[in-house]
């Protein structure tokens, strides 16, 4: 089984998904990320899906779960680089990716996290606290 590499850049973990992931690979990524967040103490996660030509409900759910898990571990997740065709398809599929923050590209994603961290204490109730989700 292939594993998606996780890079640490400063206070941010960068995951660039470059392969057509099997469901197992997606679940493994979810687990790996949780471990790396705790191990590194990073406060931001950027998931770059520029290379993904589809996002189905399984990957969508994985993204939501990652966002929820990282929030519990005090890290903000931003999904970046979603292609227009993928976004249009997700809307049609009925998947709204609730609770996931998105940005057009890695750079904007990093800005978003930086702004968030800058005044985290301002309004901590920005997003509703999600139910803790157990890894399947």
């Amino acid at each position: 089984m292939e594993r998606v590499p996780i890079l640490k850049i400063g206070d941010i973990l960068l995951v660039s998904i470059q392969v057509d992931m099997s469901d197992q690979t997606a679940v493994a990524l979810q687990e790996d990320l949780a471990e790396r967040i705790v191990a590194t103490g990073c406060h931001g996660v950027i998931i770059d899906i520029t290379a993904l030509d589809i996002v189905d409900s399984f990957v969508g759910r994985m993204l939501s779960t990652i966002a929820s898990i990282s929030r519990v571990l005090d890290a903000e997740t931003v999904v970046v680089g979603m292609r227009p065709a993928v976004a249009i398809t997700l809307v049609e599929l009925g998947l709204s990716l609730n609770g996931i923050r998105t940005a057009l590209n890695v750079e904007r994603g990093m800005e978003l996290i930086a702004i968030d961290r800058a005044d985290d204490h301002d309004d901590p109730d920005d997003d509703p606290v999600p139910e803790p989700t157990a890894s399947p």
Binding site: M82, A87, V91, R101, L104
Partner: peptide
């Protein structure tokens, strides 16, 4: 739908 798709993309 376009507005929603744009949001998914971060715009």
């Amino acid at each position: 739908k376009t507005v929603v798709a744009a949001r998914l993309m971060g715009a």
